[in-house]
Each structure stands twice: as C-alpha cells, then as structure tokens.
Design a protein around this nucleic acid. Structure first.
Lengths: 195, 195
DNA sequence: AAATACACTTGATAAAGATCAATTTATTTT
DNA sequence: AAAATAAATTGATCTTTATCAAGTGTATTT
C-alpha cells in the first residue's frame, strides 16, 4: 500500500485547489511507486533524467564531481520535494548531475510525457507548478545573493535559521559541500562561532 | 511611437504561438511605455515592486547594499529581459533589492493584477511564462553550481563564454560584483590569464 | 568482537581573495 | 578644453578558505 496521500496533500496545499476522486485516480495510474535504497543512484551524470520523483520518504543529494574528484552538493532534497535535474528532464539532454539516495527512499515517479499528457491538464497540478516555480525562483535568488555577498560563516548561520532540520538530519561534511566549503572549514567555523 | 513589436516578437518566439491582432491590442492597452534615465531607480530597497517591465532598450542592475556600504550585483538585465524583484512583485512584500538603470532605458511596464486579469489569459503569454520559468530555473542552477564549485577565474571564463556581450557592454567593476569578486581581484585575474 | 569505513577535529602551510592606499587612464560633465 | 567623476591598475598587507596530514571517535559490516 503506497502513500499517495502525501502527494495529494502537497498538490492541494500548494495549489489551493481540491483534487476530485477522478483526479486522484489519474495520479495513481501514472505515478509509479519506487523504492531507492541508501547509496543507490536516481540519476547518473551523462544519463538523461527520464523521471521526476515526488519524495514520500527519505532524502537525496544532487551533486557534481569535479576534475579532482571532489563532490559539490547543489541540492539536498527531503520529503515533499521533487527529485530531478530539470534541465535534463525538460530538454531530454544528458545530465551534468548525479542524484543519490542518502537514506532509503520511497518515491512516486513519472516521465515527462505522461506529465504533459495526463497530469498537467489537472488544474490543481498546473496551479501547483506555477506556485512551485515562483518558489524556486525566489529561493534560487536568495541563495545566489548569499553566495556572492556573504562569508561562509554567514551562509552557515542563514542555513541554520532557514532549514534547521537539515543541520539535524545530514552529516556536517554534506552541509559543508552544500555551502561551498570544505568540511575542515565548516568545522572551524562552528568552533569559532560557539564563543 | 513605442516599440511593442519587440515584446510581441519575444512572446511569440518563446511560446511558439501567434498573437492575434486582438491579443496585441490587449498588450498595448495594459503595458505602459516608460523611459528610465541612466542612474534612475526602477525599484528601491524597502519598496514593493509594483511593476514588472519588459526592456525594449537599455540595461539595468539588480543589487543589494551590505552593512559596509558595498554593492553586490545579483543580476544584469538587457533588452528582452523582464525587470522586477519577483518575490516582491508576486507577494507584494517590501523588496530587499535595488534596480537601477545603467543606460537610458525604454520599458513596457505593467502591474501584477493587470497581468493576472488581462494578460495571463492569453495562451501565448502563459506558454511564454512556462518556458521562461524553466529557463530561469536552469540558469539559476548553473550559476549556483559555478558559485560553489569554481574559482573566480573559472567563473569569469564561463561568463566570457556564455555572455560575451556582457563583457563588452558593462564596466569591469560591475562584472566583478556580479561574479562575487572585488574589482581589484578581477583586474588581477585578467592580467594573469593573458599569459 | 574485530575490522573497516566514515565523520569530525586539529595543526601546519599554501592559495585565493579582500582591503587599503596610491596612481593612471577613461569618461562625463560643465 | 578644462574640470570633475568614474574606472582600472598596481603594490603591500591581511583575512578567509583550501589543502595535506595525522589523530580520534563513531557507526557499520563481517
């Protein structure tokens, strides 16, 4: 028995619209439950991102690997987030990113063409998409501003304020990578800011 | 005589749809031409961003000022871009940003409620919005990745490749600020990379 | 329980970038 | 054209962050 309710709640909350029983059936028909175990990849660099997944349970990281073999975490995703490299998903081009499960995950996944054909026509869904893309734009802008105008310490403090559960949930080396810092530097920042 | 044609071309190009004569008339009725002179502000920090503007001619910078009085340029905008702090524009909250004309500008501006009531119902426009928000999301992701994983020199090279006209058009101190560097650092980077 | 891997910390050193000050070169403005 | 303003460069120094190496503690595996 899979938890589609989380998805329904999410769509209804963001859109402000109700999903009829028929609408819900369309979701159940086209979104496929999938389990992804810790360390397993949802997407590998070079592959096309065929699916987007709604996270019912678990967490994942989206990251690149540079020439020196170092990871850089672009995104940390948890319950009620959508998993995908949207550039690759929309344009069907090979992705520059990897997406890997940090914990065992349960997702509901679907292809781009099924979204376009069956899901987008549902008004609550397309309304949700609009809200979501606004939210993304706003969040991206805020993060970019921090990145060009703040020190590592300030960015860390902002993360603690904005997403306190991230600090609890993810090891410090992942937080460091997300902030664009090395683990050593974040360790020292935390030590100094305890004063 | 104002150049609405640039706006029509843009909407049609991005949406892949045609604007009827009636549609075009709706645009002309609700988008108001406005001239903004160099150094003039389109938006001041603390104000609500009541308008969004389509840039027909000219260029602008979106920036914040930190406690030390230093500018940080978040965005450089030129012809065929939309001017606004979208967070403030959508939510009607006071903006954290300033938007200032870098050259004399001609824009076509409109309020949020007029967009919602008259412009969004035009299919070509809402299709354009969808394409645009995809493009924004993709560009924001790319810029964020550069920011956390590349040095100033690499980010500069990427800017030269991706937006060569920016380098021509804007003074180097603005480019530096956009990249999150001081003008001195960018000057040295350029000097070293000439070798 | 031992072995292995992972996460975190600390120290020493190096590199990237910021700051402050002075000078030169361009661009506007009058 | 002269004066004023803005932009770019250079040098000296300081701060922030990365790198490399070693050591400690904590989970996972086997």
């Amino acid at each position: 028995m899979h938890n589609y309710q989380a998805l329904f709640d999410y769509v209804q909350k963001l859109s402000g619209k109700t999903l009829s029983a028929d609408d819900q059936q369309v979701f159940i028909t086209h979104f496929k439950p999938k389990k992804i175990r810790r360390r397993q990849y949802f997407l590998q660099e070079g592959d096309v991102c065929k699916y987007t997944g709604f996270i019912v349970k678990g967490a994942a990281k989206t990251f690149t690997v540079d020439e020196k073999g170092h990871d850089h975490i672009l995104k940390l995703s948890v319950e009620n987030w959508w998993l995908a490299d949207f550039e690759s998903f929309y344009k069907l081009t090979p992705s520059r990113f990897n997406i890997e499960a940090l914990e065992d995950m349960e997702i509901l996944q679907i292809t781009h063409s099924l979204v376009e054909e069956f899901i987008k026509p549902i008004p609550a869904f397309s309304a949700m998409q609009n809200v979501l893309s606004q939210n993304y734009t706003i969040a991206a802008q805020k993060r970019m501003q921090s990145s060009i105008s703040q020190t590592g310490e300030e960015r860390f403090q902002e993360l603690v304020n904005d997403y306190p559960h991230f600090i609890q949930r993810f090891p410090q080396n992942l937080i460091a990578s997300y902030l664009g810092l090395t683990p050593e530097t974040l360790s020292r920042i935390r030590k100094n800011s305890l004063k």
